[in-house]
Write a protein that binds this DNA or RNA. Structure first.
Lengths: 336, 336
DNA sequence: GTTTAAAATGTAAACGTTTACATTGTTTCT
DNA sequence: AGAAACAATGTAAACGTTTACATTTTAAAC
């Protein structure tokens, strides 16, 4: 026995329009009738059907979130940031963690084309032309998270990878006077990785340390990548004094390699990472790393997206906000 | 310039019913007209509006997922399991990680009452009467994950906490001959925790080890809880040979405490955990723990829920599946 | 070449709201 | 008391589909 607006209207002796207005918090309904309707609704256990409401209003109160598979460690924090903010403002969150690039596209098309959501938060560490195309064609607003490359005319929230990398390398140079600072980089088609590498090089240059090919090896942001990168660096005849791993996961791999090779951190080699993932605080010695405000990224994206939706500002002409990172000093760099 | 079914019908010279049938894969439309409609649709970039479809069909192709905040480490795996399976079957996932108990109820009511989803997956480590009430009253199917207590007449997928705990304690007894095995328990209102405690006690009893009050302290599944639990146990005059931490997070706390107290694992004290969280593989020495198939839990729940939705089996009279755990042997227990 | 059955298509009523616009009721002003 | 202004409510047309049921077309059978 389903109860709809009509039944409520009937029982309350008013028209369905009035009932609708009550539930839309319209001011133009008398308090006494409002109370009456609300009471009847409660008795009948009536909740307005959001699907019908969506159809009529052309709004779904739902935002779509598309995440790539690879965010692993961040996944939870991002969703949390997004969900929390969305919940506060009474919105729903439709997630899809894509399992492939094709999947990203499909989901995006579904989301955008079909009125299933009012806007989308998209995390695409590497934008490609087709994704851009879909966004451009769509009528619904999109907010990018940590997108790199050509994000033309989109809102984009990102981490300050460059400064983060710069400052942690600077720490190694200024505080510890290391001269030979190596780096295990991230995947070269990943924009986070690229910015981090740039920060590294800039810091070296700033402090007059010469560039040394042998001190930079490519990694892939994985534990194994870090493991091998570390071994490679530490097997050369010219060994570094310190290594900057482009992310914490690789630092974890480095810890394992160090253990195997009986190399002591930080006595024999200083090590720093990037991301401040949850795990890193439990490494011993505590990893020195760069904290990135992931949850904040999510909530900021939501706030911005909701703003776009409400103001009907479809395209917010290339808005970019870069969230600052902060240094987390542990003992792996040689501090105290 | 939005394009709806009417426009497609017009251009194709057929009725909207035919267009609808084409997109519903009805067999009763001639191949040639089908092709014609599909072609026009593609040209016009037409995608059926899922909201309107939902309203008409009274189906949303969406499942709701309600998770408590505290699942932290599992969050990602569960969502992943759910999302992957849902995606395979072309369903959408509406998530809500509740930030409080009130929140669980609200979300549940929204989800259930309103036709926003066709079914719900609910993870509620402690069921309470009101939640049960909502589920009972609702017309939509619900699948529980790891629910304890009175889950009357619901489908429920859970981890075999009891056996998992039993077997890891048994390992300590049989393989290592420890006599004094302590435990840091989980919150006493958490069903996972209770089952694990039961497994522990049963194993002791089975092998004729006497019950010892001083060997059991209460924890709360948090890192700090483990830290304090460990310190408490190791500060008594009668110290245990081995400690079973009710989950890995607490084991992490124990590692920290051990480091502070200069107690060596496993030389001075053996330590085991439960959950096999991602982090645990990076602890040194590798934590011996119990693996729980979290992602599988999620995907199984989805499969079951979809089954219920399709068969209109609203209430699957108390279906319970208990997924087996497996022992992960590291070095923290004293093994090689 | 009818008749009959089957296949393909069309018509129109749902689905449950929102919201311009129209109508009625109530004050306030002169 | 009547006009004017405003507040409260009602009417009915959207929103974009699906799907019983009715109708037309096509094929088969005689």
């Amino acid at each position: 026995m389903k109860v709809d607006i009509k039944k409520v209207a009937e029982k309350a002796g008013v028209s369905i329009a009035t009932v609708s207005r009550v539930f839309s918090n319209s001011e133009l309904v008398k308090q006494t009738t409002k109370d009456k309707v609300l009471k009847i609704s409660k008795d009948l256990n009536y909740i307005p059907n959001p699907i019908a409401r969506s159809l009529s209003r052309q709004l779904t109160d739902t935002i779509g979130v598309v995440l790539p598979d690879l965010v692993g460690e961040f996944f939870m924090d991002i969703i949390h940031g997004i969900d929390e903010e969305a919940y506060k403002q009474n919105w729903f969150v439709l997630v899809s963690s894509s399992h492939s690039k094709r999947n990203i596209l499909e989901t995006l098309i579904e989301f955008m084309g079909s009125g299933r959501v009012d806007g989308v938060i998209l995390m695409a560490p590497q934008m490609d032309e087709r994704i851009n195309e879909i966004i451009k064609r769509s009528k619904r607003p999109v907010v990018l998270i940590n997108a790199g490359g050509d994000t033309n005319n989109n809102a984009n929230f990102k981490i300050d990878n460059y400064k983060g990398a710069y400052s942690i390398v600077e720490h190694l140079i200024v505080k510890h006077k290391y001269k030979k600072i190596a780096m295990v980089e991230g995947p070269k088609d990943n924009y986070d990785a690229i910015d981090r590498s740039n920060g590294y090089h800039k810091a070296l240059q700033k402090y007059g340390l010469s560039k040394n090919e042998a001190m930079v090896v490519e990694g892939d942001f994985s534990v194994e990548g870090g493991y091998h990168g570390f071994k490679k660096l530490m097997s050369q005849k010219e060994k570094p004094n310190a290594i900057f791993m482009a992310n914490d996961m690789m630092a974890v791999g480095a810890y394992q390699a160090a253990k195997e090779m009986k190399i002591k951190i930080p006595e024999n080699i200083a090590l720093v990472g990037f991301d401040d993932i949850y795990l890193s605080q439990f490494l011993y010695p505590r990893l020195t790393t760069v904290h990135v405000p992931i949850a904040e990224l999510g909530s900021k994206a939501v706030i911005h997206l909701l703003g776009m939706i409400n103001n009907n500002k479809k395209k917010n002409k290339s808005f970019i906000e870069v969230l600052p990172t902060s240094l987390v000093v542990g003992e792996s760099c040689g501090c105290k």
